[in-house]
């Protein structure tokens, strides 16, 4: 009954329940809040896996900025769930989706059975997961993806400004 097992069970349960709640919830604002709680739980799991920088980046960027963007959009467009009332195009779409989902989980379980006998984890150094280590690996091994990501962000900024402009502006 180590501390890591306790953390995993509680936070894993929270993450799983809130993930299901996002899919089931009828109110869009509630769904956003459930997703924020899910991101938080996963950030705690990252902390349990010694990934300090990524955990705080997740809270700072994902839960703190991206989800606020979602919340703004939901509130601005005032969509609180009347969309679901339209009919399914194919009949019995929902049960089919659920069945396919179960099939996917079965597939993952079968595929992962082979992975269950992994050797135990390699011992890690003291600075594992700190900003220094991530920075070292990022800038000395993955510099090109880093630069491409910054161009991706530039494209996203320009794109969202263009998309959000009204037609009569210039």
């Amino acid at each position: 009954m180590t501390a890591e097992l306790v953390v995993f069970v509680t936070m894993g349960a929270v993450a799983a329940v809130t993930a299901a709640a996002v899919v089931i919830s009828k109110n869009a604002v509630h769904a956003v809040i459930y997703l924020v709680i899910n991101l938080f739980a996963i950030a705690v799991l990252y902390l349990a896996l010694s990934a300090q920088l990524v955990a705080f980046l997740q809270i700072l960027i994902y839960a703190g900025a991206i989800m606020v963007l979602f919340l703004f959009t939901v509130m601005m467009l005032n969509m609180t769930g009347a969309i679901e009332m339209t009919d399914d195009k194919l009949s019995k779409q929902k049960p089919l989706a659920l069945m396919l989902g179960l099939l996917l989980i079965a597939e993952v379980v079968v595929g992962a059975v082979g992975l269950l006998n992994q050797p135990s984890a390699v011992a890690i150094g003291e600075g594992f997961g700190s900003a220094k280590e991530v920075g070292n690996r990022l800038f000395f091994g993955y510099l090109l993806p880093f630069e491409i990501t910054s161009i991706l962000l530039l494209a996203a900024i320009v794109g969202s400004v263009v998309l959000a402009r009204r037609k009569d502006d210039d």
């Binding site: 993930a19 969309i83 989706a97 989902g101």
Partner: peptide, 15 residues
Amino acid sequence: VTGAVGVLVRRNPII
């Protein structure tokens, strides 16, 4: 899988 089923089942674009 929960996310995948959600994309298949839900119709609200933000969700």
